[in-house]
């Protein structure tokens, strides 16, 4: 029988993949990394037994993480990506010709190299874009120590239990705010609320102390199991969250985008949250 990989995130529930071929398995710096081929999802990357990304459904995550803030902003020239070493966010950002400079801060250079080799469709050559600068540094240290300003900050972090822990702290969000141009927006990976409701509660509490407008929007990423996942949204410009569909439509067309998950109609709808999440973040 073919080997199977069972995710190790929850004690009482797990998703399982058949492994058609193991492509890479590494134990490094107290971390276990595995890339394998699965018939349904293509190449799957797991870190410490938890699915990070798959070729099959990565478009949902990367499109929603990128086009929602950039199209809502409308005039994003400078974009900062924290984490995201697989290059999926970058690939979506470079599709916006209006963006002039893209900085990505990745803590581990090996992740970028490994992704180029084993997940080449994630970056699809975007690492070679002339507007792009790769900084190998701790994301928290970068936003704390840098003096650069960005219109859009995209925080593509791992789970808060692990190396991404610092990217869920009040101090990190405060430093992000300092890096934003006036009216800029920061979006964050915020987990699957049905499984980890605390994550939205914690982020909501932290955002509310820092930003004039904050909320979450959602998408269903099949391999982030447990229902919809949420993205954190924080800005001092409340209007960014209320851009009319027609405007989004016009910007989408002007950018010449063709996307598989994101649509201008879905964009505002993704900010409509289920009751249990609204209750958890005190918005109902």
């Amino acid at each position: 029988m073919a080997e199977r990989v069972t995710e190790t995130l929850y004690d009482a529930y797990a998703q399982q993949f058949s492994v058609d071929e193991k492509l890479l398995e590494q134990n490094s710096q107290h971390q276990h990394l595995l890339i394998f081929e699965n018939a349904k999802f293509g190449r799957v990357l797991t870190l410490d037994g938890v699915v990070q990304t798959t070729e099959g459904d990565e478009f949902v995550y990367h499109e929603m993480m990128t086009h929602v803030p950039i199209l809502a902003h409308g005039e994003a020239r400078r974009v900062l990506i924290i984490g995201g070493g697989d290059g999926g966010i970058l690939r979506e950002v470079v599709r916006h010709a209006s963006v002039e400079a893209i900085t990505q801060v990745e803590i581990d250079e090996a992740v970028v190299a490994m992704s180029k080799t084993y997940l080449p469709n994630h970056s699809a050559g975007a690492f070679d874009d002339p507007r792009f600068t790769l900084v190998i540094n701790d994301g928290f240290a970068f936003v704390r120590d840098s003096s650069e300003q960005f219109d859009v900050i995209i925080v593509d972090s791992t789970d808060p239990i692990g190396p991404g822990e610092a990217l869920f702290t009040q101090d990190f969000y405060a430093a992000c705010k300092d890096r934003l141009t006036p009216g800029g927006v920061v979006v964050t990976q915020n987990g699957v609320p049905y499984m980890q409701l605390d994550e939205v509660c914690n982020t909501a509490a932290r955002f509310s102390r820092l930003f004039a407008d904050w909320h979450f929007y959602s998408a269903a990423v099949p391999t982030y199991v447990g229902g919809i996942m949420t993205f954190g949204w924080a800005s001092d410009n409340a209007a960014l969250r209320r851009v009319p569909v027609e405007t989004l439509e016009a910007r989408y067309r002007a950018a010449g985008l063709r996307t598989r998950y994101y649509t201008p109609e879905l964009h505002p709808a993704s900010f409509a949250l289920p009751g249990y999440i609204l209750d958890a973040i005190g918005k109902r």
């Binding site: 190790t8 004690d11 499984m195 980890q196 605390d198």
Partner: peptide
């Protein structure tokens, strides 16, 4: 946290303080 990161989700407790430590990880363990 190290055990959770590794992927172990079964833990042992025997007192209220220890139980409290798992409050923030309750969805996983």
């Amino acid at each position: 946290r190290a055990a959770l990161r590794f992927g172990c989700t079964t833990f042992v407790v025997d007192n209220p303080d220890e139980l409290q430590k798992f409050s923030r990880y309750r969805h996983r363990v």
